[in-house]
Design a protein around this nucleic acid. Structure first.
Length: 428
RNA sequence: GGAUGGGUGGCCGAGUGGACUAAGGCGGCAGUCUUGAAAACUGCUGUACGCAUCGCGUACCGGGGGUUCGAAUCCCUCCCCAUCCGCCA
């Protein structure tokens, strides 16, 4: 969320930004409430001060009569505090509700627009679009022919949206993970595997809504735990409620986790195959930085994503996300969209966001400069290194061959142990 | 799952109703001393918010609630951690 003082002092800019982002948030009401809140705050502090003075004077009271009189005075004061406190709580609750709906400010270069139609292509990958001298298959059909994907069993076991990977698909998953980690380790990222569940508090801190009608999150009954939708959640939680020394920043992590998403309301929307599933494995980058480091860090994350997908020989474009499509926490966001011959178009495979201090404020993740008074909020960034399921779509569809096989990208061969994935006989 | 003990300021750690709303130590910062450093000595050293001309105030001792004029301290409740036992990949 945004800082309340910032909202009040920049009400007009915040309001305009809400419009650009397509969010209806009552900024004016927030500002109005802030005045109300401050009045109450000052009243309460004054009453508390007087009550504290009274309390201290009781020990020194001359006699029982005076003591009783002072006690009564104290009771009165504390009673008044309780009344005003209740009003203040109500005001704060309303403010917090509004504050939660106000999105982060937007980078001045982010394209202004309602939705992904307004996204701006910034660059293209090194790999040219494939030209097939045959009718290319989509990944579902390839998965079938090569015995790599089993959606039917997945849905029998866990329901629609779940799947089994098998045979070389499993090797590809492991190879992709290994490849991503090797690349990122060389760049100073600290590798992590994370809990696949997290406290709802951590979900909320990172900006995810664990419950409610439009939630995308699976929650675990009778606990305050949810299945994570991305390693961004536990990695962001690493510094939740903590204050680190400024010198220790930036911190770069890459975490592998399973990701679980209910995809409520997404039925029918490109729902075939691996593109939109309830569970997948993902290697995610996450960074905590000083404020002036976050913009270069976003470029760094994007650069890593490009390097990974160039190495996988997958054609893609880099898109600068439009204000209306940024979501709540992002200040700026780049997506990599890979070419997917099966759909004859681009599909999102990664996403890198600079959340500035928006996420950190909710997480309460701070840094402190030695010798200076006070603390500041860190900046947080996250970016997909490789989301296995979507990477598999792109690999299978782009590297398919006329003979029905799929070429394994050069960089993965050491781990997959073969150059080609060949069609199987029935039952394999 | 069973038993026990715990959660206090950057860290260690004292503190069972009012004497600074946290002793003492470590670490950190500044100064004295010293050719320089170390040691020693002296002082300072949490965060947030508010008011304000140095400064003052309010809140915070795991979270929430309660008792009381007054709670780190008493009560209720939840969470977490540690150790041992059992079970187990």
């Amino acid at each position: 969320m945004l800082d309340r003082k910032f909202i009040v002092e920049n009400a007009e800019a915040v309001r305009t930004n809400c419009v650009n982002r397509g969010v209806a948030a009552d900024v004016a009401r927030f500002v109005e409430l802030e005045t109300e809140r401050k009045t109450r705050q000052v009243q309460i502090e004054d009453l508390n001060r007087r009550a504290n003075e009274v309390s201290k004077s009781i020990g020194k009271a001359a006699d029982a009569v005076e003591r009783d009189a002072r006690k009564e005075e104290g009771r009165q004061l504390r009673g008044q505090v309780a009344t005003i406190r209740a009003e203040l709580d109500e005001i704060e609750a309303e403010q917090l509700a509004i504050q939660g709906t106000i999105p982060n400010m937007s980078h001045p270069d982010a394209p202004v627009g309602e939705d992904d139609q307004a996204n701006l292509e910034r660059a293209q990958g090194k790999t040219a679009l494939p030209e097939f001298d045959f009718e290319p298959a989509d990944h579902v059909e390839l998965g079938e022919r090569l015995a790599l994907l089993d959606f039917e069993s997945g849905s029998r076991v866990a329901g629609a949206g779940f799947y089994f990977l098998k045979n070389e698909a499993v090797l590809l998953e492991l190879a992709l993970a290994r490849f991503a980690f090797e690349t990122l380790l060389a760049e100073g990222f600290t590798p992590m595997t994370t809990p696949d569940v997290a406290r709802n508090e951590v979900l909320q801190g990172t900006g995810f809504i664990p419950r409610g009608p439009e939630t995308q999150i699976y929650s675990i009954e009778n606990t305050d735990l949810s299945l994570i939708a991305t390693a961004e959640i536990p990695l962001g939680g690493l510094l939740a409620g903590r204050t680190v020394d400024a010198e220790s920043l930036p911190l770069k992590f890459c975490g592998m986790s399973h990701c679980f998403r209910t995809e409520a309301g997404a039925a029918g929307r490109a729902s075939r195959g691996l593109y939109r599933v309830h569970q997948f494995t993902k290697i995610e980058m996450f960074a905590f930085t000083l404020p002036d480091q976050s913009e270069p860090m976003l470029e760094h994350l994007r650069e890593m994503e490009c390097r990974l997908f160039d190495a996988l020989e997958i054609p893609y474009r880099v898109v600068d996300t439009a204000t209306g499509d940024l979501g709540g926490p992002a200040y700026r966001k780049y997506d990599l969209e890979a070419w997917m011959p099966g759909r004859g178009g681009y599909g999102e495979v990664t996403s890198a966001s600079n959340c500035t201090d928006y996420q950190a404020r909710r997480l309460d993740a701070r840094y402190k400069v030695k010798g200076e008074k006070g603390t500041h909020f860190v900046h947080t960034l996250n970016g997909t290194a490789i989301a296995i399921s979507r990477a598999l779509v792109a690999i299978l569809e782009n590297h398919q061959q006329a003979d029905g096989s799929v070429a394994v990208p050069e960089v993965l061969r050491p781990w997959v142990g073969m150059e080609r994935i060949k069609p199987k006989q029935q039952g394999q």
